[in-house]
Amino acid sequence: MSAQRKDDHVRLAIEQQHTHRGINQFDEVAFVHHALAGIDRPQVSLATSFAGLDWPVPIYINAMTGGSAKTGVINRDLATAAHATGVPIASGSMHAYFKDPSCAHTFQVLREANPDGFVIANVNATASVENVWRAVDLLQANALQIHLNTAQETAMPEGDRSFGSWAAQIEKIAAAVDIPVIVKEVGNGLSRQTVLALKELGVAAADVSGRGGTDFARIENGRRELGEYAFLHGWGQSTAACLLDAHGAGLPLLASGGVRHPLDVARALALGAKAVGSSGGFLRTLLDGGVDALVGQLRTWLDQLAALQTMLGARTPADLQACDVLISGGLREFCDQRGIDTRPLAQRTTTGTAQAAGSSPAPGAATGAGVAAHDRTESTR
């Protein structure tokens, strides 16, 4: 049953990639174009740092799959592409391995095909500390990812219905392991309140993983004969909304969910993400064109992100946080209702950096300017 469910997830995720999913709120984030802001390409670095980690690039292959023979092949191919490009990679949920150790190799291939790369093990919030260590040891993992998925579990026919112990178990896991712990949603987003709670639980970073990419509630509802949980399709906040909401909450933020191309990567970085992940789009490329196609896509994304940084005058991914951005549409309405002042985002080059509009931000200017999105009182938090 578990192996079949993993194969169903891949099939239904690919079906979603071929269908329209409505508005993507990254399109409601626009850079202000300053025609003299550009710098020289050799000045640009793609390196990023967070939670004591140094990554050569700010793009990662996010959690997908594992647990069946077919998904083991997918994991091997994903890891091969990660190895060829230096891109970090996360495993899919390793719960299947805890239930059936015979499927260990479907996850272990992530390390075998990527012996020197950055590999993240993925577990759920109910995993025991013993099982967490099993997962970390199996992958020789550099970091641990704990996923939160109440909407998915609710729509899943055989899903969990008890969520009250999750926070305490996350705290227990974070205290027990000696590698950074990243907590992520699976596509419904992390609110500011959730990120503040995660900080208190001792995790190292939060992947907001918002609405806009693969919809796992929709996937699980697709496994139901009657599809009676269709009302959960599209549940949650977009990735862009989550980044704006959680800015300044005290944890390094990663971003995934609805990331379609390098401009979305740049937008997420400008809104405060330290690195940006994608799953469904990379999976579609792999299944349509093979490993070489995915390697080509990853290299293209990295090259185009560097090109965007060059044009915008951002020497590093962090410097994109000093670029002027405009927030419009439903995303702006979300910010208004959550008490987030977006006006400073459009005035970063004239406030906070002592730079004239149109000039290149100084190295490290992003640190001084910040996202400046939360002009809130305590009563609004």
Rank of each mutant, 00 (worst) to 15 (best):
Q309G: 13
G313L: 12
Q297P: 03
A249G: 04
A314N: 14
F282Q: 14
Q321H: 08
Q337E: 12
A306G: 10
D245P: 01
T342I: 05
R267L: 08
G339T: 05
S328M: 11
R332F: 06
A372W: 08
V265N: 05
P252I: 10
F334D: 00
T300M: 13
E378L: 12
P262Q: 10
A365C: 11
A240W: 00
G289F: 12
S279Q: 06
C242Q: 00
A306W: 03
W301K: 02
R315H: 15
G339Y: 05
T300G: 14
R376C: 03
A249D: 01
Q304R: 09
L269G: 00
A346E: 08
P262K: 11
A293R: 14
L345Y: 11
S256M: 12
D324G: 12
G257Q: 03
A346V: 05
S360E: 14
L298Q: 06
V325K: 11
T310L: 10
G290S: 09
L269Y: 00
H374R: 11
G329Q: 06
E333P: 06
L271K: 00
S359V: 08
A240E: 00
G290L: 03
G330S: 14
C242N: 00
L269F: 00
G313N: 13
K274F: 13
W301G: 04
P317W: 06
R332N: 10
S379W: 15
G258Q: 06
Q304S: 06
T367M: 07
V371F: 01
A354Y: 01
L308R: 06
R315W: 15
G258S: 06
D288H: 13
S279D: 06
V259Q: 07
A314C: 14
G280V: 09
R315L: 15
A357Y: 06
G296N: 12
Q355A: 03
L305A: 13
F334R: 00
L271N: 00
D336P: 02
G296I: 12
Q309T: 11
I340P: 02
A275N: 10
A322P: 06
T310Q: 14
D336N: 09
T342W: 02
A241M: 01
A362N: 08
T342C: 03
R343E: 11
A241R: 00
R284Q: 15
W301Q: 03
L263C: 08
P363F: 15
T350D: 05
S256A: 15
F334A: 00
G358A: 09
H261L: 09
A372F: 08
I327L: 03
T351G: 02
D319P: 14
R284C: 14
R348S: 08
G277R: 06
A366S: 15
A270I: 02
D288C: 11
T316I: 13
I327S: 03
L326D: 07
L345T: 10
I327G: 03
C242D: 00
A270D: 01
M311K: 14
V295Y: 15
E333K: 13
L331W: 01
H247W: 01
R267M: 09
D375C: 14
